Amino acid sequence: MREKASLTVRYVSEQSVRYVPGPYTGQVDLIASGNVVMVTISERNPKRIPAMKLKLKDSPVYVGVNKGQPELLDKVNQILSAAKADGSLEKNALQWLKEPLPADL
């Protein structure tokens, strides 16, 4: 008789990454989470760096500006456009998120 395979899967949020030991100790086989959590796991246990198996989606990130502040919105857009154009936005994504910006950004 063939034995049934066992697989442990866990979702790890940014809030729980400090308290959930599974990704660090090998108690789980797979985790589903964002790249910020994966970077934290990699830094805390370099011997168990997670490998991406499947990308579920690119999560957008927004900069919020109150309505009625068009000058501030324009300034934020100028800063982001300049950072994208000079490569510093990509450099920061690689440094902090450990992956490049999406091609369609």
Score class of each variant (00 low, 15 high):
R2A: 14
R2G: 14
E3M: 11
E3V: 15
K4C: 15
S6I: 11
S6T: 10
T8R: 04
T8K: 05
T8S: 08
T8A: 07
V9A: 04
R10K: 13
Y11A: 03
Y11Q: 04
V12Y: 01
E14M: 09
E14A: 12
E14R: 06
E14S: 11
Q15M: 02
Q15R: 12
S16H: 09
S16T: 09
R18L: 07
R18W: 10
R18P: 00
R18H: 12
Y19C: 03
Y19H: 02
V20H: 04
P21I: 00
P21N: 06
Y24A: 03
Y24G: 02
T25W: 09
G26R: 01
G26W: 11
Q27D: 12
Q27V: 00
Q27R: 05
V28C: 10
V28M: 03
V28K: 02
V28R: 00
L30G: 07
I31Y: 03
S33R: 09
N35S: 14
V37M: 00
M38F: 12
V39Q: 03
V39G: 01
T40A: 07
E43A: 14
E43D: 15
R44F: 08
P46V: 12
P46K: 07
P50R: 00
P50M: 02
P50A: 00
A51Q: 15
A51H: 15
K53Q: 13
K53Y: 15
L54D: 01
K55A: 12
L56W: 08
K57V: 15
K57N: 07
D58F: 15
D58L: 14
D58K: 13
V61Y: 09
Y62T: 07
V63W: 10
V63Y: 13
V63N: 12
G64Y: 15
V65D: 00
V65H: 03
V65S: 02
V65Q: 00
K67Q: 15
K67I: 11
G68Q: 09
Q69T: 12
Q69S: 13
L72C: 01
D74I: 00
K75P: 09
Q78V: 06
L80S: 06
L80Q: 06
S81M: 05
A82W: 11
A82T: 15
A83T: 05
K84T: 06
A85C: 08
G87F: 10
G87Y: 05
G87K: 04
S88R: 07
S88L: 02
L89R: 00
K91D: 09
K91C: 06
N92Q: 01
A93G: 04
L94C: 05
L97H: 05
L97Q: 04
L97Y: 11
L97A: 11
L97G: 03
P100N: 04
L101S: 03
L101Q: 01
L101K: 03
P102K: 08
P102E: 05
D104C: 10
D104A: 13
